[in-house]
Computed example of a mutant assay.
Amino acid sequence: MFTGIIQALGMIKPLEGDFWQITCVTQSSNVIMQDLAMGDSIAVDGICLTVEKVLKDGFIATASPETLRRTTLGQEQTQQRYVNLEASLRVGSKVGGHFVMGHVDGIGQLMSAQATATSWEMTFTAPKAIAHYIVPKGSIAINGISLTVADYEPELSQFKVSVIPLTYAETNLQSLSSGGWVNLEGDILGKYVEKFLLFGKQDLKQSTDTIPSDISPAFLVEHGYL
């Protein structure tokens, strides 16, 4: 589990087979490297990868066929590029963003990026399978970055985020051009809410009579699910 607060930038390149080499390239990379060990989980552009070999300034990991199919790793396998890095959340650590699982739902595309006086306003597309998890003021992970949805246009499957200058400068959003692909992960809370709405009534009735069986969007809002 991660929080969507990027700790360092790296460069990723494919090796033979399904192996990928990730090299840390920023001064803050000691946060990633200080006690990195084989078997650790690192979010690479929001993709949870397992460290299989520790290098002097990075590590090697494997991407499964499913990972390649769902993420940007399967889009440009021969191109070396910047990736966002975050070590897995430790017990007692601060949760500065939101709970990010590192299980990418699919890929989206940058439509536009415009600098304002206080932020970068970036508009992305999202596949329909992901779009229904997007709500205004809700959370979404873009290349592993925890961001807040500023606006959402369901008819276009597009959403907008406002990125503060610090986040823009410290992540690979700065090198993303129009038409570029990004990894998207919807908020895990929305996925559980969806499960309860679709299957909760039947499951709850079978398990106990003490839990309300009339779970609805209005019920969830009333009890704190916005």
Results as ranks from 00 to 15, higher is better:
Tyr82Val: 09
Tyr82Arg: 15
Tyr82Pro: 12
Val83Pro: 11
Val83Ile: 14
Asn84Arg: 06
Asn84Met: 03
Leu85Lys: 11
Leu85Val: 03
Glu86Pro: 14
Glu86Leu: 13
Ala87Glu: 09
Ala87Ile: 07
Ala87Trp: 09
Ser88Thr: 10
Leu89Asn: 07
Leu89Val: 15
Leu89Phe: 15
Leu89Ser: 10
Arg90Asp: 06
Arg90Leu: 15
Arg90His: 13
Val91Leu: 15
Val91Ser: 13
Val91Ala: 13
Gly92Glu: 09
Ser93Pro: 01
Ser93Gln: 15
Ser93Leu: 08
Lys94Gln: 08
Lys94Glu: 14
Lys94Trp: 02
Val95Arg: 04
Gly96Cys: 09
Gly96Trp: 10
Gly97Phe: 10
Gly97Asp: 05
Gly97Glu: 09
Gly97Val: 06
His98Leu: 01
His98Lys: 00
Phe99Met: 08
Phe99Ala: 00
Val100Met: 02
Met101Leu: 15
Met101Phe: 13
Gly102Met: 10
His103Phe: 04
His103Tyr: 07
His103Glu: 08
Val104Trp: 05
Asp105Tyr: 11
Asp105Trp: 13
Gly106Asp: 08
Ile107Tyr: 01
Gly108Met: 04
Gln109Asn: 07
Leu110Gly: 04
Leu110Ser: 01
Leu110Trp: 03
Leu110Met: 14
Met111Arg: 07
Ser112Asn: 13
Ser112Thr: 14
Ser112Ala: 12
Ser112Ile: 02
Ala113Arg: 09
Ala113Gly: 12
Ala113Gln: 11
Gln114Tyr: 02
Gln114Phe: 02
Gln114Ser: 03
Ala115Leu: 08
Ala117Gly: 04
Ala117Lys: 14
Ser119Met: 09
Ser119Val: 05
Trp120Gly: 00
Glu121Asn: 05
Thr123His: 05
Phe124His: 01
Phe124Val: 07
Phe124Ile: 03
Thr125Gly: 06
Thr125Ile: 08
Thr125Val: 08
Ala126Ser: 15
Ala126Glu: 08
Pro127Phe: 03
Pro127Arg: 08
Lys128Phe: 14
Lys128Val: 13
Ile130Thr: 08
Ile130Val: 10
Ala131Met: 14
Ala131Tyr: 11
Ala131Thr: 05
Ala131Leu: 04
His132Glu: 11
Tyr133Leu: 10
Tyr133Gly: 02
Ile134Glu: 00
Val135Lys: 05
Val135Ile: 15
Val135Arg: 01
Lys137Arg: 13
Lys137Ser: 12
Gly138Leu: 00
